[in-house]
Structure formats: C-alpha cells, structure tokens
Design a protein around this nucleic acid. Structure first.
Lengths: 133, 133
DNA sequence: GTAGACCTTAGAGTTCCATCTAAGTCAAGC
DNA sequence: GCTTGACTTAGATGGAACTCTAAGGTCTAC
C-alpha cells in the first residue's frame, strides 16, 4: 500500500493534484486506513497511470470521470469503455496528424529563416528552448 | 483589407478572441481605418495563421508575444526567431513522440477489451466519440 | 508529552485562455 | 433624423485544471 506522497513520486502528480482528482470523483476506488488517510494499491496506481495517460492525450477530466464511473459499474460496461477508448484512439491519431501538419509549417518557417540568414549566427544566445510540453 | 469579422471567418477565431489577442499585444501590426476599426491585410492574415499554428502546437500566448515582439523589431532578430522555431520544432516532435507512446497504451487497453468481450457488442450505442481535439 | 512529519478538510486563489456585457461610436439605408 | 448593424472599449465572467492556505488530526521518536 502506498501513501499519497508515494503516489505523487511514482506518478509525477503533486499531492494537491491527487486530492483534487479524488474530490472530482476520479479516484472512487481509493481506500482509507484507520486514521482516514488514503492508501493506494498497486492496481490503484495502474488506474492513476491510465488517468494520466488519458489526460496527457487531451481527454478532459469530466470525460475521464465518465470512464471511471463506467469502470466502477462493473464488467458489463466493458463494451462501452472499449467504445470510449476506440474513440479516444481516433482523437490521438487526429492530434498526431494535426501536429505533423503544423510541423510542416514550422519547418517551412525555419527553412525561410535559413535562407534569409547565414547558417548558425545567432543574436540572442540566451534564448532558451520553449518550455511548453 | 479585411474586417475583424472576415478574419474571424477566415482563421476560425471568434472576434472576441481576435480582440483579446490584440489586447495581449499579439497583433501590433494591425492598422485602423478612419473610424478606428481594425483593418487586416493579407500579410496580417498570414501572421495570424502562424499565431494559430503556434498556439495549436502548444506554445503559450506570452511566448508567441515574445516572437511577435522580435518580429516587430526587424530583420536583425531573424536568427533569434529562427532559434525559437527550432526550439518549437523540437517541442512538437516531443509531443508527437509522447502521443505515439500513449497511443500504444490505449491500443493495449483496446486489445484487452477485445479479448475480454465479444467483437462488436456495445451496451451503449449513444456514446459519442470524445470531442477533445 | 511534545516536536516533527505526515496526513486530513473546506475553501480561497492562480493561471491560462476565452467569452461576454455594457456603454458608446460610426456609417449606411430609409 | 432615426434605426440598424458592425464596430470600439474596459472590465466582468467563465471554466478547466490545478495550487495553496488554514486549521486541525494522528503517529512516531526522543
């Protein structure tokens, strides 16, 4: 069994975020110990990792909650959950396609700058790479 | 010359959003007509399309503003702008890689559901595909 | 038995991005 | 000259996803 801090470390979420997810109903499967503290099992961890995966691929928390709700309802919702994942796969493929398209635009822009100016000159070496993920 | 409504239609942004971007300093190149209304040139449109491209690939508005500010400073900032685009290209490639990795997780999940249940059965036909883009 | 580290809660605050409201200006058509 | 409609502004509001604060409970070690 893991504490909230363990999960935070293992899943790369802050403890705040984990509590927030719980409050939002994303973690109804998490149990408590005698003193009311959350305790997470290995399978809870797996579920949280799946939640992160869905979130990182652009699924909204309320949609993830819908998935979790189905999960809690039992095996008879498997076809429905599968349906959601199939839809989400399509969404991810769309995103990848879109990113690849936009990548082309940026490539063109870079090529333009390459042509407009000498190879490696830079007026502003302190420019750090954008931090967006 | 295009009105704000034209640009809204041509770029898929609401007029609110265009004004908001202007207020945020993303459109310093836009001129006004006699009565104070914004008028957009063809090259303004191109710039707005680039802004959309950067935004859609996860660049924050303040980072985009930094790019626009450099653009307004003139050609001597080209190496710096190129640097930004090179960094952003790396960011897009990271995003694509990440999505592809997560796609694998979802594929596995679907395969699991496929195994757990009959081929095309579905308990919940009204499930629409997730709308996240 | 008390200090320190950990947890709990409710609820406030923050950031980002966008959207809307209210009040007003301007130009064209009747 | 008045209505209509598109535009302007400042600033309020919204929602998504956190992030933090305050007040307090519980366990362990000394």
């Amino acid at each position: 069994m893991y504490s909230i801090k363990d999960v935070s470390r293992l899943c790369g979420l802050s403890a705040y975020t984990i509590r927030f997810y719980d409050k939002e109903g994303l973690l109804p499967f998490v149990t408590r110990n005698g003193s009311g503290n959350r305790q997470f099992s290995e399978s809870d961890l797996d579920m949280i990792r799946l939640i992160c995966c869905l979130k990182n691929t652009g699924m909204q928390l309320k949609e993830i909650k819908r998935y979790i709700d189905l999960f809690m309802e039992g095996d008879h919702t498997i076809p429905c959950r599968k349906q959601m994942m199939v839809g989400h796969r399509a969404s991810i493929l769309r995103q990848i396609g879109e990113l690849q398209k936009q990548l082309g635009v940026i490539e063109t822009k870079i090529a333009f700058y390459e042509a407009a100016n000498g190879a490696d000159s830079c007026c502003c070496l302190k420019t750090e790479a954008p931090k967006e993920k």
